[in-house]
């Protein structure tokens, strides 16, 4: 079975000469097609850089990146855009929703960008929002939703294009523990229910038990690869 993500000896550096900073050093990682991984590490350790390379937001300085069976190591910006649109789902740490679009329209936006619209898209968006417990909030703008609801809409949007890989950048950082647990449970349910792979960046070790395994990163080096003890 094809892995959802394969990173082979990935290095990412910024600057040149004495000013060169290595954000990611010889990182190698494989994520199975239905696997959920927690990626933990302190600030500045390279978590977001790894996530960005995995999602086609950033190109590596060296190494090979394979997403959904496609090598994107040397993809052009336009090809990377296509990969993000069709193969990867994102839930970012900060801005996740377009403020002038309703919950439903935020999901439909994904299909609009693919040039696909119509009843099938609307039905899919409605079904996703229903699964996420937002059936009655379809037509609400983000400003009319709570933090937890906004995060659920973002998860729905990330799943809208039926991605091979979903990347979550600290999805619970703005939520309290109880709400964070709820959101993680929802992520696990949605991701596992669809047989989709996921990488979840988190600072909170209490959330790692929802994942199949935990990968630690420190100073750009992938350190540990441990199996989850619960969940």
């Amino acid at each position: 079975m094809t892995n959802a993500l394969e990173l082979h000896d990935i290095t990412k550096t910024y600057g040149e000469g004495d000013n060169m900073i290595t954000a990611l050093a010889s990182a190698t990682l494989a994520v199975a097609s239905d696997e959920m991984i927690a990626l933990i590490g302190p600030s500045g350790s390279g978590k977001t850089t790894l996530l960005s390379i995995a999602g086609g937001l950033l190109s590596p300085s060296s190494g090979q990146v394979i997403v959904g069976g496609k090598d994107i190591s040397h993809a052009s910006p336009s090809e990377l855009t296509e990969v993000r649109r069709s193969t990867v789902g994102f839930v970012f740490q900060s801005v996740n929703l377009v403020p002038f679009l309703t919950a439903r329209e935020n999901l439909l936006l994904v299909d609009e960008l693919r040039g696909s619209r119509g009843k099938q898209s609307r039905d899919r968006a409605d079904r996703l929002l229903d699964e996420l417990g937002l059936a009655k909030r379809l037509n609400n703008l983000p400003s009319q939703l709570s933090g937890g609801e906004r995060q659920r809409v973002a998860i729905g949007r990330a799943l809208m294009n039926e991605p091979a890989l979903v990347l979550f950048d600290e999805p619970t950082s703005a939520l309290d523990t109880h709400l964070g647990e709820q959101v993680m449970e929802l992520i696990q349910s949605e991701v596992k229910g669809r047989g989709t792979a996921a990488i979840i960046i988190t600072h909170d070790r209490r959330m790692t038990h929802w994942c199949d395994r935990t990968v630690t990163i420190l100073d750009g080096h992938l350190q540990t690869d441990e199996l989850a003890t619960a969940g």
Partner: peptide
């Protein structure tokens, strides 16, 4: 004012020309 939204859209696969 909406640069954050535009950045998000670029990240989720919107082409510049779109």
């Amino acid at each position: 004012q909406k640069s954050s939204s535009l950045t998000l859209m670029r990240a989720i696969g919107a082409h510049r020309r779109t």
